[in-house]
């Protein structure tokens, strides 16, 4: 079913509205805190005049709606402000950090699908047997495990005790320096692959396995359960049964009807779980010293670096809403029953 132009325009307008809504809510929330961010700006042992000056520079001496006005006018011009902690433009900081987080999330999603879909399909085919039960418990485990704890424990066991995998960082510096690797997009796996730099590629891959695996727990459980649910529904449907009755090979039936039908909702549900996964990524990043948005946001949040906090929240909300929108549109194109 083609998606109407009006619908997309409406969604885009809503998107703009949501971004500004989120911006205003976050702005107000951050300014309620009775902290003194001028301390950040002025340095660790400031004098009274320095604090006074910092307050003026940061407009902290103005009422909140004036501050909001300043921020909004700058924001529209594409100036997201300067981080009060790092004194770096926030947008630039985010641009450096975001690819690392996205790379982690994407690899985690790929892992989740590779492990989750076959397991879910298996469970659907073996309904109500011990296989089904085991898959069910394992997939529910994925949604029940505290990611930061799993990260700590796996890091301790696999990296510290057994030395199987690197337990922190994104890539080893010496490989980068020896090979003169220069990132282009910031997605190290992608960049090194297109440059044919396999030393960096394998090194980065080795580093991403553990954090991505930890992060894949939640989407893995989701994809396994969705696959199981959709496939068992499809397997029960009239046309599947008729197809079998008509003598179509069983393999064809499973792939052509069941698995294919299952994939769209699985990917849709993964898309919807993006928001949850990215927060999971924040915690995983803290444990694995992954130089992504999470590490940046956590530091910004704990030190009341407002421009950085607002920047991070907006970026995450933006990605989240865009993905939700795409999922909705794609979903409606695949599944004619969904009306928009």
């Amino acid at each position: 079913m083609p998606v109407s132009k009006e619908y997309i325009i409406k969604r885009l307008l809503l998107l703009v509205l949501v971004v500004f809504g989120v911006l205003i809510i976050t702005f107000v929330i951050t300014r309620i805190i009775p902290a003194h961010p001028e301390l950040l700006w002025a340095g660790s042992h400031p004098t009274e005049e320095q604090l006074e000056k910092a307050r003026r520079q940061l407009h902290l001496d103005k009422p909140i709606y004036v501050q909001l006005y300043y921020y909004l006018t700058d924001f529209i011009k594409g100036n997201w402000g300067v981080s009060w902690r790092t004194k770096h433009p926030v947008l630039k900081d985010i641009a450096t950090a975001l690819p690392a987080t996205l790379e982690l999330v994407i690899v985690a999603f790929i892992m989740a699908i590779i492990i989750g879909v076959p397991l879910g399909a298996l469970a659907a085919l073996k309904r109500e047997t011990w296989v089904d039960h085991v898959v069910r418990v394992v997939s529910v485990l994925g949604a029940s495990v505290p990611v930061f704890w799993l990260a700590l424990i796996l890091q301790l066991v696999l990296s510290s005790w057994l030395g199987l995998l690197p337990g922190a960082k994104r890539v080893d510096e010496y490989v980068v320096i020896e090979t003169g690797f220069k990132p282009i997009t910031g997605f190290i796996l992608f960049d090194s692959l297109i440059q044919g730099n396999f030393a960096v590629f394998t090194n980065a891959l080795k580093h991403i396995i553990l954090p991505a695996f930890v992060l894949s727990m939640y989407p893995f459980g989701l994809s396994a359960r969705m696959t199981r649910a959709v496939m068992s529904e499809v397997l029960n449907e009239q046309h599947t049964r008729s197809a079998l009755a008509w003598g179509l090979p069983k393999r064809v039936v499973i792939y052509k009807y069941a698995l294919k039908n299952a994939l769209a909702p699985v990917i849709a549900s993964l898309g919807l779980s993006f928001g949850y996964t990215i927060i999971g990524a924040f915690m995983v990043e803290l444990v694995f010293v992954w130089p992504g948005l999470g590490l940046y946001a956590a530091m910004a949040l704990l030190s009341y670096d407002y421009p950085a906090v607002i920047g991070c929240v907006i970026v995450v909300a933006l990605i989240y809403t865009v993905i939700n929108m795409i999922v909705d549109i794609v979903h409606s194109m695949i599944d004619p029953r969904v009306k928009l």
């Binding site: 490989v175 020896e178 003169g180 220069k182 044919g196 030393a199 394998t202 090194n203 891959l205």
Partner: peptide, 22 residues
């Protein structure tokens, strides 16, 4: 995955494809 892990845990000097420093 396991093959990758064991392969990549060898020293990287063994990998001949290194771009020269600029």
């Amino acid at each position: 995955a396991i093959i990758y892990m064991t392969r990549t845990s060898k020293p990287t000097e063994a990998t001949p494809t290194q771009t020269p420093p600029s």
